[in-house]
């Protein structure tokens, strides 16, 4: 196992998530794309810690921060989905156009 071997799937997961977050219309599916992107970030952070600086605990703390970001993204995403759906009966990003300039 090498660092490149770990980082390449991480970049793949990130790009797959990016494709989903950009192309999906449903707000819940956009959140799934963002989850995949954070999954790629976690893989990369764990790889960097393992292969470059295993003595530095800050690398592990970065993974903890990414996991917390995942949980926060999920909770706030569902809260916003609920608020938008309650206001307009809308579950698609294209139809939630209140902020369109």
């Amino acid at each position: 196992m090498t660092l490149e071997l770990v980082l390449l799937p991480a970049a793949g997961l990130f790009s797959l998530g990016l494709y989903g977050a950009l192309s999906q219309q449903s707000i819940v599916m956009i959140m799934m794309g963002i989850e995949l992107m954070i999954g790629g970030l976690i893989t990369a952070a764990a790889g960097f810690w393992h292969f470059l600086a295993p003595t530095a605990p800050a690398g592990q703390v970065l993974v903890v921060a990414a996991v917390v970001a995942m949980a926060v993204e999920m909770a706030m995403g569902f809260a916003v989905t609920t608020a938008v759906y309650r206001a307009d009966r809308v579950d698609m990003a294209d139809m939630a156009g209140e902020l369109r300039g």
Binding site: L3, S15, Y19, L52, T55
Partner: peptide, 27 residues
Amino acid sequence: IAAGVFLALAAGILLVPWPARPAGEPP
């Protein structure tokens, strides 16, 4: 966009001269 991001990341991953050995032993 996703393919472009992946290619850019992959290029970075493969071109950067990473250190051959980790700095120290894992705990």
